[in-house]
Design a protein around this nucleic acid. Structure first.
Lengths: 134, 134
DNA sequence: GCATTTTGCTAACTAGAGCAAGCATACTTA
DNA sequence: TAAGTATGCTTGCTCTAGTTAGCAAAATGC
């Protein structure tokens, strides 16, 4: 059932270990800085356990990286979302708007697509289906 | 020990229950949409259990709100971080889109505004204190 | 009136996050 | 060489997130 089996987990662990080693810190040091136990950190780095968001927050603090970047690697946050959205994209903005229902999003996206379709010379774009950005 | 004892938890639960009721859905319906058990959702709404980020993701999908907004209420994401990319950015993205004519922009903005206008009674981002109970 | 469904909830259980204690190997320093 | 320490890891354990089964009260139908 778990949507992020161990792929993303391993990637997260690798990233954490890289960060720790490039900072020349031991497992115990980072564990202490983050306020978690060192055996547990060891298991996280090797992808054996799946840390909660709370633990990720503490680890981010200890490693001096952003919590959001860890969330992204753990698969609980969209990458696009973490990247500060200076680059504005209408489709993306619409699909992330918490105030819109799914149906309203589809309506807006369809309208938008119909507008831009006209100027894309003759693209024969996919008409109605909501294309998930990503 | 836990940094977010039950304060933020209660706020999250209240928010979830408000969203569900304003959508006129039962516990079981939302639980099914989100793919979680209904007793568990009941406990989350009453602030008795602390859902993981994964569960919050599924709940966001079922309730058609952004996962990030739930993360904020659960205390695992900074408010500022989730703030900007929502309401503001849709309007801004539209008005900055070079592919749209002025008239098309106005159309899209009008549609968008009409959508979010309806939400005044059921706001997606309550200031957490003022609850307008219809 | 009584039966059926729908509502939210309680109780008992399972699985896994996160912990303290301890182990084996490598690196010091005397 | 041997004593001391730092490294990462394994072993059990506790606690709680999340489950299934089932309850009492409210709504709906016959």
């Amino acid at each position: 059932m778990s949507p992020n089996p161990l792929n993303e987990l391993g990637s997260l662990g690798d990233y954490l270990r890289e960060q720790r080693q490039s900072a020349k810190l031991s497992l115990r040091q980072v564990a202490e800085l983050a306020g978690i136990s060192n055996p547990y950190l060891s298991q996280i780095e090797r992808g054996l356990k799946r840390p909660s968001a709370e633990i990720l927050q503490q680890l981010a603090k200890g490693l001096e990286v952003s919590a959001e970047s860890l969330y992204v690697k753990a698969g609980i946050l969209d990458e696009e979302f973490a990247h500060d959205p200076e680059a504005l994209d209408v489709r993306r903005a619409i699909s992330h708007d918490a105030r819109l229902t799914a149906r309203q999003k589809k309506t807006l996206l369809d309208v938008y697509d119909s507008f831009v379709e006209d100027l894309d010379s003759a693209p024969a774009k996919t008409p109605a289906t909501t294309r998930t950005p990503r």
